[in-house]
């Protein structure tokens, strides 16, 4: 069966009929985007693979509940995003907000939502890996708070439109635009030394 020309919705119909090859096609289509987003959020290959695997298993086992009115990509990215955030919240709270919640408006709110520790999720090996990717910019993305990192990765690298990002992250469209604007500003600041 050649699924190449079929839409995600059509492939899902075959998967619902129990075609093993249709499940594999959905994995083939989304393994890279989903893994990329998760990896850039957690910066640890083994962990990113575990979270990506968990995402696919959840999504593929729940295809009966998928509403074809919506994009499959939004759904799978949403599950991936939630799994990643859950992990960051539960296992490594210090990675969550180095500079406080983006919603914080006063210094007290910033202090209350900040962690003094720096992100220690990245092993030396992973750090080397990010350097190998050529990437001062990868390192800069890593220093963004997770909310900004997610919108930057989804918009700039995965090419998802704003409304889809809003759906994925369960945020109002305006907030997504604010986050991406702030994220870009922070990146420009961090990469200033590269200016000619």
């Amino acid at each position: 069966m050649d699924y190449g020309k079929l839409s995600d919705q059509d492939v899902i119909l075959y998967a619902r009929k129990g075609r093993d090859s249709a499940f594999r096609e959905l994995i083939r289509r989304y393994e890279r985007p989903v893994f990329s987003v998760i990896y850039r959020m957690v910066r640890n290959r083994e962990l990113a693979e575990d979270l990506a695997q968990e995402t696919f298993i959840k999504v593929l086992n729940a295809l009966d509940r998928y509403n074809p009115k919506y994009k499959f990509s939004s759904w799978i990215f949403k599950i991936a995003h939630n799994a990643t955030l859950d992990h960051l919240r539960k296992k490594q709270p210090e990675t969550l907000s180095l500079e406080g919640s983006p919603h914080a408006e006063t210094q007290d709110q910033v202090d209350a939502t900040s962690f003094a520790a720096v992100d220690n999720a990245e092993s030396p090996e992973d750090y080397t890996h990010s350097k190998e990717l050529g990437s001062e910019i990868e390192a800069a993305i890593q220093r963004l708070r997770p909310e900004y990192r997610a919108v930057i990765v989804l918009w700039h690298i995965e090419g998802r439109p704003y409304d889809e990002i809003a759906e994925i992250m369960d945020l109002p469209l305006g907030t997504v635009k604010t986050y991406i604007h702030r994220g870009r500003n922070e990146l420009r600041g961090m990469l200033q030394h590269l200016r000619h």
Binding site: R24, I27, E31, F35, R45, A52, Q53, I57, L60, N61
Partner: peptide
């Protein structure tokens, strides 16, 4: 875009 390691699809399918 980054790719997961080889055998990713089979590992997922074991849980589906």
């Amino acid at each position: 875009e980054l790719a997961p390691s080889a055998g990713f699809t089979d590992r997922v399918m074991q849980g589906v």
